[in-house]
């Protein structure tokens, strides 16, 4: 594993951690410590501490667990998107299951981390996220596709305003998602589509942010419908 030398071309990646599971926090810090280009900028064990953490200097990557003792990590993700707009949020999950991951992406997370990943994989995922890529699994790809299909041609979905239509998937983005549902990895897709693996991962990031924007538009539409917001 080649480690970029500290203080050289690649800048340090600052990671903030909101995690109540001490074992996993330990595993994380150990994995990060082994990589020279990543540093833990702060840790929090509860939702309150996590929100407090966001008052400080922004980190590059924020790792959030959803099941915090005093509330949901979703709130922390939402706050981070507001307060640390340059930070990439990553949700840590046991199974990478659709319910946890898609919900986090909809409120602004850019990736997820399986808690049983090896230290090398953890470090990889953090680097990947910091450089603008996002991970994805076949089932999540299928879910995302279904979401956009619903928005694009659904009868029950809100009418899409002109600035929101751009948030629909491009043909290549759709192709990437479809290949993922067929079991191809990012590297294989890169070869199939003559792209760099990084480009494939950044496509995924773009798809996630589109999902986030669309979800916000949907939420506003819903709120308008229910009279929560005026006009």
């Amino acid at each position: 594993m080649e480690l970029p030398a500290t203080g050289q071309t690649t800048p340090l990646i600052h990671v903030a951690i909101v995690e109540d599971d001490l074992c996993f926090r330990l595993a994380l810090t150990e994995a990060i410590a082994s990589a020279g280009d990543i540093r833990v900028a702060g840790t929090a064990g509860t939702r309150a501490e996590g929100l407090q953490l966001l008052q400080g200097a922004p980190a590059d990557v924020l790792l959030v667990d959803l099941g915090l003792p005093d509330g949901s990590g979703i709130d922390v993700i939402k706050a981070a998107v507001q307060q640390w707009s340059s930070c990439s949020v990553m949700v840590s999950t046991n199974f990478g299951d659709e319910t946890h991951v898609i919900r986090s992406i909809e409120v602004g997370a850019s990736g997820y981390l399986l808690k049983d990943s090896s230290p090398a994989k953890i470090v990889n995922e953090i680097r990947n996220l910091a450089s603008g890529g996002s991970p994805i699994s076949p089932i999540i790809a299928r879910q995302v596709l279904a979401r956009f299909r619903q928005i694009g041609g659904g009868g029950a979905s809100p009418p899409v305003a002109p600035e929101e239509t751009t948030q629909l998937l491009s043909a290549r983005e759709k192709e990437v998602l479809e290949l993922i549902t067929k079991g191809f990895t990012a590297n294989e897709i890169a070869k199939l589509m003559s792209l760099s693996p990084f480009t494939v991962r950044s496509f995924v990031r773009r798809i996630y942010s589109k999902l986030n924007v669309t979800s916000k538009a949907e939420a506003i539409y819903e709120a308008r419908n229910q009279g929560i917001l005026d006009g």
């Binding site: 299951d97 659709e98 699994s137 076949p138 089932i139 299928r142 993922i180 549902t181 067929k182 079991g183 191809f184």
Partner: peptide, 16 residues
């Protein structure tokens, strides 16, 4: 997870 009759998606998940 709903695989919607898609065996490939199932195999993809297994690979993942």
């Amino acid at each position: 997870e709903p695989v919607e009759a898609d065996l490939l998606l199932l195999l993809a998940t297994l690979r993942f």
